[in-house]
């Protein structure tokens, strides 16, 4: 108690500044998170609305881990999310740097890059699905016109190609955010440093790896964390474009959790799946932080 009072006195100002943020997080997220944690040890079927959740210990977890399908979905998700994060970050950083170079039409490019991010997700998913359509899609039409035989080519009948097709959409919708943040980050690097580096004889690539990247480290860290988190949870695009098919071969964790929660109505097991997803993402995040800290770190 005394310690608390001392802490408050000493750190009162920063705590006060954090208060508004904590209020929102506290009101909105604390209860749902604790509720999820608690439910994950219970059997709670929404179909039995009148019955209270029944405590079952680790049963939900046991059932998930012993389900072959879970491991299949986890592998799918890992590969898909990994690929998407790499592509998103590479494209985002590249475009961010490009936008930082003054050239005519930069604003136009800035607006253009924003477009895929802005189009409502449901509409975008449906438009893309149509672009990919085997019979009437513009993509097969253009590719065939260019001399490749893509007539009637089906983008969604096998998992690897379907993942590729959806991946393009996911990356397309997430790289603008990365690009814009990188652009903003680049603005914090003063031109003098760059000029000094150039004066020391550093070429463009060396300037990028030796000056730009280290200066952007904190930003890259949070962007990578957020992209990983989002791509690991990806739901909308797959739900609209493949529905997890054909034959459940494009299931990812997001779909798996949804189907357990609102398909099978097993809220307890869905909560356990969510906890597993959380644990995996938390570990990945800590690894990222560790890597970043090997230089100067979070502090």
């Amino acid at each position: 108690m005394v310690a608390l009072r001392v802490a408050l006195k000493r750190y009162g100002f920063p705590y006060a500044l954090l208060l508004p943020a904590l209020l929102g997080v506290g009101i909105l997220t604390l209860y749902p998170l604790l509720n999820t944690f608690w439910l994950s040890f219970h059997r709670y079927n929404l179909l039995r609305l009148g019955q209270a959740p029944v405590f079952t210990g680790l049963e939900n977890y046991r059932r998930i881990f012993s389900d072959e399908f879970f491991w299949f979905v986890l592998r799918n998700t890992g590969l898909f999310a990994g690929g998407c994060v790499l592509a998103t970050m590479a494209l985002g950083v590249g475009v961010g740097c490009l936008l930082n170079v003054p050239f005519r039409g930069r604003t136009i490019l800035g607006v253009a890059v924003l477009l895929p991010w802005v189009i409502p997700k449901v509409a975008a998913g449906i438009v893309w699905k149509w672009i990919y359509d085997d019979q009437y899609g513009i993509l097969n039409f253009i590719l065939t016109k260019l001399g490749f035989d893509f007539q009637g080519f089906s983008w969604f009948s096998s998992a690897p190609i379907a993942f590729l097709a959806v991946g393009v959409v996911v990356v397309g919708q997430s790289f603008p955010f990365i690009a814009l943040s990188i652009l903003a980050g680049l603005q914090a690097i003063s031109p003098e440093i760059m000029e000094a580096a150039a004066g020391d004889g550093a070429g463009p690539w060396q300037r990028f790896t030796l000056v730009t990247l280290p200066m952007l480290k904190g930003l890259l860290l949070i962007l990578t964390i957020l992209s990983t988190v989002w791509d690991f949870k990806v739901f909308d695009q797959i739900f609209i474009m493949t529905e997890g098919g054909p034959a459940q071969s494009t299931y990812v964790m997001g779909i798996y959790a949804w189907m357990t929660a609102f398909g099978e109505m097993q809220m307890g097991r869905a909560a356990a799946i969510a906890m597993v997803m959380f644990a995996i993402l938390a570990v990945i995040t800590l690894i990222y932080l560790r890597i970043a800290r090997s230089g100067e770190g979070l502090e």
Partner: peptide, 21 residues
Amino acid sequence: SPEASVTWSALNARQAFALGT
């Protein structure tokens, strides 16, 4: 039916019929 109809839904099939495929 075209190979891709493995994943066709009612909407796709309807289109394919409407356009004479």
